[in-house]
């Protein structure tokens, strides 16, 4: 058995159909547990007050947005190298989900920044980088819609995805090396001394898992939709030729 078997749309539909209810259910459970724990059962921070509760959506959304781009990059590379249509459709399916998470991170960041920094927005290098990242998502989705030939669209968006990966990488690691500006350092780190306090850390990790599972569930649904649409278009093209 090889992973490439699932490049076959029929096999992908069969497998994704089996795992989807479990992934969706687990996403709902994990998100509910993490958010209820974080919102209702954790204390206010001594410095940031109750705004610390925004961490349970801001950090998981930002993390999932960057991971979504990584999924798109891998799927795009598979398309470019091996020409598997399912991988191109997975990349296409992931983009609106990633864009939504990026917008959530930007908006919740603004809501958090206003009381803490005294401004909704600052041209801080990390914030600006994330805004450019959001624009890459918009451009990626627009390019898919603008190009009529699906293979050409997959090629062009694949190249755009590779270019945009620079900003995804910068968004991931900017908190570690871009010290100027208003944004704080990493909330989670392999170095335990830098992590947020345990009382916030556990529900935060659960929320991060919940957002990742939600991403996976939505991508599976959307990829299945793309495959169905592609099949319907192929049948309609056959009808027109007959």
């Amino acid at each position: 058995m090889s992973i490439w078997e699932y490049a076959n749309p029929k096999k992908f539909m069969a497998l994704s159909g089996r795992v989807l209810p479990w992934v969706a259910g687990l996403a709902a459970l994990t998100l509910a547990a993490g958010l209820v724990w974080g919102f209702f059962l954790t204390p206010d921070d001594y410095k940031q007050g109750s705004t610390v509760k925004i961490i349970y959506i801001h950090v998981p959304a930002a993390s999932a947005a960057i991971n979504a781009w990584a999924v798109m990059l891998i799927a795009s590379l598979v398309w470019i190298v091996r020409r598997h249509h399912v991988s191109a459709l997975v990349a296409k399916a992931a983009a609106p989900v990633g864009l939504t998470f990026t917008l959530i991170a930007l908006v919740t960041g603004a809501f958090w920044g206003q009381p803490m920094w005294g401004t909704w927005w600052a041209w801080d290098p990390r914030l600006t980088n994330f805004l450019i990242f959001a624009l890459f998502y918009l451009g990626y989705i627009a390019l898919w819609e603008a190009v009529e030939n699906p293979d050409t669209a997959a090629d062009l968006t694949g190249v755009l995805c590779i270019v945009g990966s620079v900003f995804a990488l910068l968004s991931r690691y900017a908190v570690l090396f871009w010290n100027q500006g208003l944004h704080q350092g990493a909330s989670l780190s392999m170095d335990a001394q830098e992590n947020v306090s345990d009382v916030y850390w556990i529900p935060l990790v659960i929320c991060i898992a919940g957002f990742e599972l939600l991403f996976l569930a939505l991508v599976l649904v959307r990829a299945r939709t793309e495959i169905r649409t592609r099949r319907a278009q192929a049948l309609m093209a056959r009808e027109r030729l007959a």
Binding site: F39, D44, G49, S50, T51, K53, I54, I57, H58, A61, T100, L103, I104, V107, T108, F111, W112, Q114, P115, L214
Partner: peptide, 19 residues
Amino acid sequence: LGKYAFAVLGSYGVTALLL
């Protein structure tokens, strides 16, 4: 949520709407 109620509830509200 004290004086930060708008920021916290606004964040959760916009997230719920977008999702």
